[in-house]
Amino acid sequence: MEVRTIKVFTTVDNINLHTQVVDMSMTYGQQFGPTYLDGADVTKIKPHNSHEGKTFYVLPNDDTLRVEAFEYYHTTDPSFLGRYMSALNHTKKWKYPQVNGLTSIKWADNNCYLATALLTLQQIELKFNPPALQDAYYRARAGEAANFCALILAYCNKTVGELGDVRETMSYLFQHANLDSCKRVLNVVCKTCGQQQTTLKGVEAVMYMGTLSYEQFKKGVQIPCTCGKQATKYLVQQESPFVMMSAPPAQYELKHGTFTCASEYTGNYQCGHYKHITSKETLYCIDGALLTKSSEYKGPITDVFYKENSYTTTIK
């Protein structure tokens, strides 16, 4: 009895394709271990004539594949690729409408935090270190965002349907971005203890939790000093293409032309909904596939993004 075979390709990165001759009487799992086709788990399936010449994702289970996976995804987590594939199996079914010149995501599976993050990423200057993220990001900007969303979920250790947080998501993504040249110098002034300067680099240099107003941050924000008295913390120097200011959701007025974009969060910790506000020729609110415009805006804002380049204080 002759062994019926077909020729397929296996890959971990969709760049390096490895030619395989597979036995049609055995499952993919018996031949390769966990195997995925377009995100779908085909591990328990036997090869079919229609699979001839198709590319299958496999887990990096030998040295060659491990090197290829690390170079593309910059992670050695053995569960990463499987999590990416199972997320992709959902995100490829989502709709990605162009809204006001940006790629958004039609609401499904509690994905409003991903839509808000995706919209924000198209408006701030950011370059990702893992080629996987950078490639998928370019495709997302062009309207094909399924891979990018699935990668975000995998890097953030999230599953489809789980509630997510924009600030946490951005923080994970910033860790995989090139923020080497970003720098922030802060000064804390206390009447009792004097003053202390701190220099922050990388992710810490672009994120701040405690106030939404970048102007206020430049002037000074009140913080408790270690001595128990009130101290003032203010920005001395900022070198970065953008800054992200966050605070627990509270009524906040966004003035046209003073910011790049913002995240609105309605609801409580267990259950809520994100919308995205962007400042173009007027203010726009993007909620999944829905767009509304207004000249002014007041609502429960939790993150505001500002364009920056270089700032030095005039406070002496």
Rank of each mutant, 00 (worst) to 15 (best):
H51F: 01
M209E: 05
V188C: 08
I45H: 14
Q270H: 08
K316E: 15
K307L: 09
Y84T: 02
Y155R: 03
A115Y: 07
P248K: 07
Q30S: 13
V67M: 15
Y311G: 04
A145M: 02
V206Q: 03
C193L: 04
D13K: 05
Y214S: 01
N147R: 09
P248I: 13
L186Q: 09
F32E: 04
G210C: 08
V221N: 00
Y72F: 10
K183V: 11
Q237E: 09
L81E: 06
Q222R: 13
F148S: 01
G194I: 08
E71D: 11
F80G: 02
I45F: 14
G161Y: 01
C156P: 01
D41R: 06
K201F: 14
F259P: 01
P34C: 15
Y84A: 05
L65F: 06
E52Y: 11
N49S: 11
I277M: 11
G194H: 00
G53K: 12
G82L: 15
K7Q: 10
G267D: 15
D62A: 07
L37T: 09
D62M: 05
G161T: 02
A87M: 05
T198E: 10
R139A: 14
K127C: 09
F128C: 08
I124C: 04
P248E: 06
L173D: 04
T192P: 09
Q30F: 04
F9C: 11
T258L: 06
M170N: 02
D180L: 04
S25T: 14
P224A: 12
S86Q: 13
Y73I: 01
Q20C: 08
M244V: 10
K106L: 10
F148Q: 04
L17A: 02
L200P: 02
A140K: 02
Y214P: 00
Y84L: 10
A87L: 07
P47E: 05
H273C: 02
A145L: 01
A142L: 11
Y306E: 09
T10F: 07
S50V: 11
Q20M: 14
Y297P: 01
A231F: 00
A140W: 10
D63A: 14
A150M: 07
L291H: 15
T199E: 11
L212K: 06
C149V: 12
L119W: 01
D62Y: 05
E2D: 12
F9L: 11
L37K: 11
T116D: 07
